[in-house]
Design a protein around this nucleic acid. Sequence first.
DNA 1: GCCAACGTTGGC
DNA 2: GCCAACGTTGGC
Length: 158
Amino acid sequence: MKYWLMKSEPDVFGIEHLKKCKKQTEPWDGIRNYQARNFMRDDMTIGDQAFFYHSNCAEPGIVGIMEIVSDPYPDFTQFDADSNYYDAKSDPDDPRWILVDVKFVRELEQPVSLKHLKANADRFDDFRLLAKGNRLSIMPVTRKQWNTVLEMEKELGQ
DNA sequence: GCCAACGTTGGC
DNA sequence: GCCAACGTTGGC
């Protein structure tokens, strides 16, 4: 099993949205970055776990856990002219944008903020989230990094 | 294939 | 709202 981190703006789609929606499962739509797409298309497997990260908000950080529950398939929003994610250049016979479905697993009892992650950066080796200028919205997380974040969750609850 | 211009991301 | 860091686009 592999581990991931996936960013979303809580004003647009936050962890509580995923928690409330039908079957607590949603397509992770709107990704328009090739590197992020490639991770979903080529590297994700059903059963992989992912951190839900809130970006572009008052307290950016890791707030929950999701599971990858589908194989990759085309992002329908790319063909929806009314969607913010519409892509006129995408060919229906060869869709440019691919996504997976994610399912809510749980919220962290104590969110692990970006501030906290940065303050403890020495406990991670090469965490991409903490790399300077990192803007990637989907990235791999090592098992060790995953466990360290969960340790921090526990510590914060003490 | 280079690179300037432009658009986006995301922390602050 | 600002702006640094990136990614993409398109002229040449």
